[in-house]
């Protein structure tokens, strides 16, 4: 101690001042940095507020003009004079149905792949297979759009859909869902299939992640009493991870609902609600993407109102997803 005191006294006065200045500077920098991080963090909240506010401001004229009717009106006639008739029913229908069909296809595939990866796959293959699936999530939306337009759409229209039409031709109800009247490479079904491919990596990735949270001892116990692989998956893994799987599925649903470019390319941009999944349709995001740049007045406001509806819809779906995944994380942490 005494030696330290001696050293301190040995330091000339000027050096002490310098040291104080440096320390003051550091303290100031410290405060500024802390403040900067806090401002940046609150900016995230501000972005959300900004999105909601700008959507509400933009959508206000349409809300005033159409009110609740907007949700149940089937017509979309921006050109009518003096007042356009605009209703959200057709794009809402297209959005929900295309996402539903996409989930119907992607969920079983995603879970199947996750089961394969966690239970069956040889260790060396695990990484490359996962990479091949997860890279699907990296391909830009517009690439899916053009690929669907030039490759997948014509293939479906020429080879797959005619046989589906023929298969269901004599079954009531199904023959109107799989109607052959409108088969073309632009349809609700084709858009759904592209969506299914696009959300597959999300479902797979989350399913693999949550499957690996199952304590090995549980699985080993089940194998130990003579369970088959499927029984272990069905009775141990799936029940244990149910919340997480549902969370992952909801997350993928949130993606599907808001997907824009790929869908715009191949859904056919038609504001007609048709019972047939081979008919052209539209979605909220496709309607905005294809009409917004040239819209004005009430038409533009109605498109922003559509955007607001989509945001609210995806917000709730994504919030539910995050909530469920959080619950799983908590349990895994405990």
């Amino acid at each position: 101690m005494s030696t330290a005191d001696e050293t301190m006294q040995a330091i000339p006065h000027v050096a002490k001042q310098q040291r104080a200045r440096v320390l003051l500077g550091m303290a100031l920098g410290d405060k500024v940095f802390a403040l900067a991080t806090q401002v940046a963090a609150y900016l995230v909240l501000l972005v959300l507020a900004g999105i909601i506010l700008s959507l509400i401001v933009g959508a206000w004229p349409a809300m005033k003009a159409f009110g609740f009717e907007f949700l149940i009106t089937r017509r979309w006639a921006p050109q009518l004079e003096p007042e356009p008739v605009l209703g959200a029913l057709a794009p809402i229908y297209g959005t929900l149905v295309s996402s539903f069909i996409a989930m119907l296809i992607a969920v079983p595939f995603g879970l199947g792949i996750a089961i394969f990866l966690t239970e069956l796959c040889p260790h060396r293959l695990r990484k490359p297979v996962r990479l091949a699936i997860e890279l699907l999530a990296g391909i830009p939306s517009i690439i899916y759009g053009m690929w669907g337009f030039f490759v997948l759409g014509p293939f479906l229209a020429n080879y797959i859909e005619p046989s589906l039409v023929a298969a269901f031709a004599n079954i009531p109800v199904l023959n109107s869902i799989f109607s052959g009247e409108m088969v073309s490479n632009l349809s609700l079904f084709n858009a759904s299939l592209i969506l299914a491919i696009m959300i597959l990596p999300f479902i797979t990735a989350i399913a693999v992640d949550v499957f690996s949270t199952v304590p090995p001892v549980l699985k080993e116990a089940a194998y130990g009493i003579g369970c088959t692989t499927w029984e272990v998956v069905n009775n141990v893994v799936l029940p244990f991870t149910r919340v997480g799987v549902v969370g992952g599925v909801m997350l993928a649903l949130g993606r599907a609902l808001g997907e824009t470019m790929a869908v715009t390319f191949i859904i056919g941009n038609s504001f007609k609600i048709s019972g047939s999944i081979f008919a052209p349709s539209t979605t909220i995001s496709a309607a905005i993407a294809s009409e917004f740049a040239e819209s004005s007045g009430l038409h533009q406001s109605a498109l922003i109102l559509l955007g607001l509806l989509l945001f609210v819809l995806t917000f709730f779906v994504l919030a539910t997803a995050r909530f469920m995944l959080m619950r799983l994380e908590k349990r895994a942490g405990a």
Partner: peptide
């Protein structure tokens, strides 16, 4: 722009 009864846009 009209309300087309059929078709792809």
């Amino acid at each position: 722009a009209v309300e087309w009864p059929v078709g792809v846009g």
